[in-house]
Design a binder for these strands. Structure first.
Lengths: 219, 219
DNA sequence: ACCTGAACACCGTTCAAGT
DNA sequence: ACCTGAACACCGTTCAAGT
C-alpha cells in the first residue's frame, strides 16, 4: 500500500479518470501528463495500463458505446426500438461531445461497440427489414444522429438571448449583412422563439423513421 | 525579391498551403512549423498573416464552405437545389475529411459560410417553406450530410476485399463473434456485395427529401 | 510487476531583435 | 512591414533504472 494511492492503478481506473477529465475540463486538457497527475502518478506509469494515447481513446469510445441503450432484438417493435436508441445516442454524445468524431474510427471496434451494433441490426431484422434495407436504415439513422450531435455541439442557439448575442456579434463583424436577407430572417425569428434542440432532433428523427416505415412495407 | 520566395507571403498563400498540407499529408501534419517549412519560411513568420492556429483553421473552414455549390434562391425548385447542394457538400467533405468536425464551430462564421447558409435558407423559403419548416429542413439535411461524411471517413468498407479484411481481423480479435449473429450476417453480405457510399448517401438523402416534401405540402 | 527520472523529438506562441 | 532566433511552457513516448 503506497502512501498516495491505496487502490493500485489499473486500466479501468485510468479510463474512468480520462473520461471524467475529458467531460469536465475538455478534450484538449486530456493529456497523458494531466491524466497522470489526476491519478497521483507520473505520466509514464500510464503506459503500463494503456498501450498509448490512441488505445486510451479507443477505450473511452467503447465506454460511450456502452452508455447507449438499445432494446434486445425482437423485444419491441422496430420503430420504438430505433427511436429510443437514437434518443439515447444523442444523450450520450451530449454528455461526451468530444467523442463524436471518434465513434466511427478505423480502429478495431471494442466489445461494447460490437454489442451495440449487433443489437441495432437485430432490432431491424427482427422488425421485418430485409438485410439491405436494415443497412440502409442503420446508416441513415446513425448519420443523422452523429451529424445532429455535431451541430448541437457547435451551435450557440440554446436560448433567445444567446441567439441575439451571436447575431449582434455577427452583424458588427459583417458590414453587408443586409445582402443576406434569408439569414437575417432566421436570426430574427430565432431571437424571438429560441431553438429547442431536443424537439428539432425529434422532428428529423421521426421524419426518417416515417420514411423507413415505407421502405419496410414495400418489401 | 528574396532568394527563395519570389512571391511574398500573404494570408491567401498561407491558407492555400495549409489546405494542401492537410489534404495530402493529413490533419496531424498540419502544424505551424511544418506549414512554415512548406512555404520556405520560419514558423514565426506565419503569425504576421494569421492570428493563431485557430484563426488559420477558421480560414480553412471558410474555403471549404466556398467549395460547396448551391443554387441562387428561386432559380431552381427547392428539391433539386437541396439535392445538388447536399451532394456537393458531401464531395467537399470527402476532399477535406479533416474539416468535418470543424464546420459547425462556435467561432464567428466566415463570409463563404454566411453566403452559403443564406442561399440554402433562401432556396427553401422561395420553394414554399414557411420559416420554421425551412429551419427544420436545413437542420435535418445538414445533420444527415455531416454525419454521413463522418461515417464515410471512418469506415473501411469501400470494396468487398476491404470488408473481408476488416471482418477477418475482427473475428481474430473477438473470440465469441458468434454471439453476434446479426453483425456476422452484415459482414458476410457486405463481403459479397461491397458497399457503395455514393448510393447509400443518395438513399438516405432522397428519403429525407421525400419527408420534407410532405412537410411543405402540409402548409 | 509496476513505477519513475531523464531524455528525445516534437508542439503553439511570445518577444526582442534584426532588415 | 515583414521575418527570425531564442526562449517558454507544453506535448507523447522510450528506455534504463529503480522497487
Amino acid at each position: 500500500m503506497s502512501p498516495r494511492t491505496r487502490t493500485p492503478l489499473n486500466r479501468d481506473r485510468v479510463l474512468k479518470a480520462a473520461l471524467d477529465l475529458a467531460d469536465t475540463r475538455g478534450f484538449e486538457d486530456l493529456t497523458m501528463r494531466k491524466l497522470a497527475k489526476e491519478l497521483g502518478v507520473e505520466a509514464m506509469s500510464l503506459y503500463n495500463h494503456v498501450r498509448n494515447k490512441e488505445d486510451l481513446l479507443a477505450g473511452l469510445v467503447d465506454i460511450v458505446f456502452g452508455e447507449i441503450e438499445v432494446a434486445e432484438p425482437g423485444s419491441a417493435d422496430w420503430r420504438t426500438a430505433m427511436r429510443e436508441r437514437s434518443l439515447s445516442m444523442r444523450e450520450a454524445l451530449l454528455r461526451h461531445p468530444w467523442a463524436i468524431g471518434l465513434m466511427e474510427g478505423r480502429a478495431r471496434p471494442g466489445p461494447e461497440n460490437i454489442r451495440y451494433h449487433n443489437a441495432v441490426v437485430g432490432c431491424l431484422r427482427e422488425g421485418g427489414f430485409a438485410f439491405r434495407e436494415a443497412v440502409h436504415a442503420m446508416s441513415a439513422l446513425d448519420a443523422y444522429t452523429y451529424g445532429f450531435a455535431l451541430q448541437e455541439r457547435g451551435l450557440p442557439f440554446e436560448t433567445p438571448e444567446e441567439s441575439a448575442q451571436v447575431m449582434d456579434a455577427q452583424r458588427a463583424q459583417v458590414p453587408d449583412m443586409d445582402s443576406y436577407p434569408y439569414l437575417v430572417e432566421v436570426a430574427t425569428e430565432l431571437q424571438k422563439a429560441g431553438y429547442d434542440y431536443a424537439k428539432e432532433f425529434a422532428f428529423g428523427l421521426d421524419l426518417i423513421l416515417d420514411g423507413l416505415e415505407g421502405l419496410r412495407a414495400a418489401k
